[in-house]
Write a protein that binds this DNA or RNA. Structure first.
Length: 468
RNA sequence: GCUCCCUUCGUCUAGUGGUCCAGGACGCUGCCCUCUCAAGGCGGAAACACGAGUUCGAGUCUCGUAGGGAGCACCA
């Protein structure tokens, strides 16, 4: 039987980092075994589910390249099916109607708490066999086994045993006619032929009661793998106020999907000492059983390092379109300057994100608007600066082949002729080109400016070097 | 309160009873390289939560303690 996994988010917000990792692990597990990965939208909470959230989740998965083989399947489209299965359970005597009001339930819980027990339903209607009544308080409850225990071998957490005496008769169908999560998931996972349920470990506690439903239905219980959560840098749960942003925010912040995927796969899983994994390698090497059981913190510094590894190792031409996207985002027309691929080559050793790269590429796409006073004073007002600029202006103007190599030759010759060190030559030119003391190597910096702009800027710098 | 889960350098992790005075990576840091900034190269500091037990031998097994987390809904 082929491996089938599913990612089942509830559409109440964007695809956050934890969800993205869950989706990745589900996707990898399916791909690794040549199985199927299914997207299911758990939208039975009508109050909080939105179409925008559904779209945001799909967008996020698409950006990461985690395409589903089936779905999205919406739970709200399957209501009839849940009713059918619930009715079957009721007819088999494995579920029953209960009519307590909310107040009665609350009182029941409070009483249990006061006895030092966990808040539970007391099973008042369990054996009463009350018929269906049109009552606003009517719910359908599951007859959970009252003795024995549920044991399962979690792929991540190991063996987990749960005594049935800890479980109560939970609600299958709410009074509003919608199924509860614990019931709908089981029906869905059975119908979809899910063989491995991979989800956040906040669901560990739900698993025993879900297994009881599988058994009541005579279905095969799938394999479970509960993933530990991802914490913020401070060790606290990711919340809206720190770090809980959608994956698309990472695109906006200048990260490559490959880098995020790589970071996520290593957060809780490893393969020896290897740090860099292409998607193909992940698919080949990933094994859900090797995932760690403990929670991990999200470390932006390492994500940044990884992102740069990808910036450096991938073909500049393949990164260029993404850089163009970022240039446009900050109001730069990518056609108004050098080929973005050449910019990637020049800056990939110097930035960790495409957002920073776009920002630093600005000098080649639009006029210099700010001059760093210290840079001007130190490198343009020096005694040798005018000579350097003048010689460079001359030589670059006569240069036939506007290429990095040729420009490098020009700069070197100027240094040689004036008997100056490279520092004395490169720095004035750098300030001339960028208005600052920091940029890629001087040959690349000049090359990217283009001949016209380069000559124009050197002339302007010459003026500045003479001015008081 | 009850049940369940987790615990190796600051962080992500390797480690499945001896090969561990604990390895790698990020970060930090020293040196080298160098036209700036980076990148790169070579070094360094830095961890088995604690206590018992099992064993000839424990980071690795067992039990307790402490700390952290999740759940106990007609929310998923």
């Amino acid at each position: 039987m082929s491996v089938r996994t599913r990612f089942a988010p509830s559409p109440t917000g964007f695809l956050h980092i934890g969800g993205a990792r869950t989706a990745l692990y589900c996707w990898l597990e399916a791909r690794h075994h040549g199985g199927q990965f299914i997207l299911r939208v758990e939208d039975t909470d009508r109050e909080r589910s939105t179409d925008e959230a559904v779209q945001a989740i799909i967008d996020g998965m698409q950006w990461l390249g985690l395409e589903a083989d089936e779905g999205p399947v919406f739970q709200t489209a399957r209501l009839e099916r849940y009713r059918e299965v619930a009715e079957q359970l009721r007819a088999d005597g494995k579920a029953y109607y209960a009519y307590e009001s909310r107040e009665q339930i609350d009182a029941m819980r409070a009483e249990a708490m006061s006895r030092g027990e966990k808040p539970r339903y007391n099973g008042y209607y369990r054996d009463r066999d009350e018929p269906y009544r049109d009552d606003p308080n009517r719910v359908l409850r599951f007859k959970n086994p009252q003795s024995g225990s549920v044991v399962f071998e979690d792929k991540v957490k190991g063996r987990i045993e749960w005594s049935n005496s800890e479980l109560d008769d939970f609600v299958l169908f709410r009074s509003d006619g919608y199924p509860t999560y614990n019931f709908a998931v089981v029906v869905d996972d059975i119908d979809m032929g899910i063989t491995a349920v991979i989800r956040g470990d906040d669901h560990v506690n739900n698993t025993p009661r879900q297994i009881n439903v599988y058994q009541a239905l005579g279905a095969t219980v799938p394999v479970f793998a509960h993933l530990p959560m991802i914490l913020g840098a401070d060790g606290q749960k990711l919340s809206k106020r720190h770090g809980a942003v959608g994956v698309m925010q990472y695109r906006e912040d200048g990260y490559l999907p490959e880098a995020l995927l790589n970071y996520l796969v290593r957060l809780g899983w490893s393969h020896g000492d290897q740090e860099i994994f292409s998607v193909d390698e992940m698919v080949r090497l990933f094994d859900i059983a090797e995932v760690n059981a403990s929670a991990a913190r999200f470390d932006m510094a390492k994500l940044g390092w990884l992102n740069q590894q990808y910036l450096k190792s991938q073909d500049p031409a393949s990164i260029a379109p993404e850089l163009e996207w970022h240039l446009q985002r900050i109001g730069i027309d990518p056609t108004s300057g050098p080929n973005p691929a050449a910019v990637v080559t020049a800056l990939c050793d110097r930035v960790q994100t495409l957002k920073d790269m776009a920002e630093r590429a600005r000098v080649w796409y639009s006029p210099i608007t700010e001059w760093d006073d210290k840079a001007v004073k130190k490198h343009l007002k020096s005694v040798t600066a005018p000579k350097v600029l003048d010689a460079a202006l001359q030589a670059l103007g006569e240069l036939g082949d506007w290429q990095v190599e040729a420009i490098h030759g020009v700069v070197a010759r100027v240094a040689e002729q004036l008997e100056l060190g490279m520092g004395k030559v490169a720095q004035p030119l750098r300030v001339a080109m960028t208005g600052t003391q920091v940029s890629p190597s001087i040959d690349q910096t000049i090359y990217l400016a283009g001949r016209d702009v380069a000559l124009h800027r050197i002339k302007h710098a010459l003026d500045l070097s003479h001015a008081d």
